[in-house]
Amino acid sequence: MGVKFASKDKAIKAKSKSGQKGEKSFGWKLLIPVLAFFGFFNIVPTLWMLGLSFNDYKLISSNAPHYVGLSNYQSFLADQQVAHAVNRTFVFLAFAIIFQTTLGILIGVLFWRNDKLRGRRLALTLLFTPMVVTPVASALFWKLILDPNFGVGNYFLQIFGIAKIDVLTSQSLAFPTLLVVDTWMWTPFMALMTLAALGSVPKAELEAASIDRLPLFTVIKTVVWPHAKFILMLGILLRSIDAFKTMDLSLIMTDGGPGDKTELIALSLYRYAFKSFNLGYSSAISVFLLFIAISLTSIYLYVLNLKSRKEA
């Protein structure tokens, strides 16, 4: 929008009967429905949660909730089980991101180079379906496949001479299995982001590089990466946010077990709230998760701004 438009805009606004002030208030009026929803369904629950976190409130005890200051936060910080769950979640996140990004980039490049693939749309549909299936369904599907008695997964293991095994109750294999299923679900997403990232590289620059016969590594470093890095980063961030939220998958596949081997923080939180009904304490954990979500969103928007500045 140049100066010319701005002045034109002013002239038009002056012409309109309501004038500039009316216009501005109209802008606010348009926001009312969304703000009302946001207030009732987000601000209120969040403040409620904040309030609960300062109270001792257990649904199963007959005591009325009462103010206990920071005591929930103190027990949260001292809670070894929660600390383990948080650590485990970060380990899960790190491995998930590494596997999914690596595989996703490889698959993305494969499809990028095959943009005239016969039946490309169908192939991509098959590839992308796992990521839009709700984790509840994926978890059930894999439970059927991995069943120790009749699962087809064990059938394939037997072909390779490995005895039947129940991976979901195995001390050493349950967590890696969860990672494999998560990787199955989300590698397609990183492939999608890779395709988008590669698509954001200007064709003219690629053609120029091709005419100059630049070596592949130079092309990637000087032409592809400067454009592609933003969308790739956004993909990784979105995956981190989502991996941090992982709950349904471990709830259904392993229920956190065996022992606490697959207990991720979101699942612990769910358990504290709906199994032991300790609402005060679980609210303190919620506040912690909220804080992480807000931090990750800030980083996400920071990268998004870098991207749009680069494009402008």
Binding site: M49, K245, M247, L269, A273, S283, A293
Partner: peptide
Amino acid sequence: RFKPAGTDFLMFLLLSSRFVPAAALVIP
């Protein structure tokens, strides 16, 4: 079009509300 004060902040809040683990908000 109107870019009311706090537009960026509101957009940020909206997005972050979608990034909070469901288990955290389901209690309240």
